[in-house]
Amino acid sequence: MRFYKNELLIGKANVERLKNKKVLIIGCGGVGGFAAEAIARSGIFNITIVDNDIIDITNLNRQIISLSSNIGKNKVDVLYDRIKDINPSCSVIKIKEFINNENVKDIVTKDFDYVIDAIDSMTSKIDLIEYCYNNNIKIISSMGMGNRLSPENIIIDDIYKTKYCPMAKIIRKELRKRDIKHLTVCYSQNEVNKRYKEPSSMIFAPGVCGINMAYKVINDLIET
């Protein structure tokens, strides 16, 4: 049985429950790729993935879907094949679009039980968060994982409790303007490494962030 080991840990009823849940993952890079991997291997049978980017050679050091053999391919195409290879019974919808204020209402619907926000663009991230908040759609958002080496101290909390995260600081300010009272995020409590001016990243921080986000989603969707 494909998810027998899951059943031993969370129980048969929860395995069956997860089959009927729908998860939307927006952003399929360093964080989103690991989140999608964990969501698929946890037995979610309805997954929608959104990204308009292609795999670049510079992604090979940290993104789980990136290989030398698929450089130049669309990330959603590669991730689609990967999820189907993990679980052929999974219904996977791929959307090659960049989330913005105009299309968010067409992509994000109340049919989804959870939204995983792994977007890099600050504007798109805020548009998505605001839409989900106003429409009572559950969402968890990743904060900045760049310029951090250590995977330690990457935790899940409310955005208004975050510290040492420049991205969270900016988003908090914008959310206050929109009267958004809370947002579940995964962020690093490690201070940003300012050694290099150019954005840098390795697999450790984004990988752990993606796994943590997927864990939060699964834990919220099962009955413990």
Rank of each mutant, 00 (worst) to 15 (best):
C28W: 00
G29E: 12
G30A: 09
A35C: 12
A35N: 04
A40S: 14
I44Y: 12
F45L: 09
N46M: 05
T48F: 04
I49H: 01
V50M: 08
D51S: 00
N52H: 12
N52V: 00
N52F: 14
I55D: 05
N59L: 09
L60V: 06
N61C: 03
R62M: 06
I64P: 00
S66G: 06
S68G: 01
S69Y: 08
N70L: 14
N70I: 03
G72T: 03
D77W: 11
V78A: 08
I83N: 03
N87F: 06
P88M: 12
S89Y: 13
S89G: 07
S91F: 10
V92P: 00
K94N: 07
K96W: 04
K105D: 05
K105A: 03
K110C: 02
A118M: 03
I119Q: 10
S121T: 08
S124F: 12
D127A: 14
L128W: 13
I129A: 06
Y133T: 01
N134Q: 13
N136F: 13
I137Y: 08
I137S: 03
K138T: 02
K138Y: 08
I140D: 09
S142G: 15
R148S: 09
R148Q: 15
R148K: 15
L149A: 12
P151K: 06
I154Y: 13
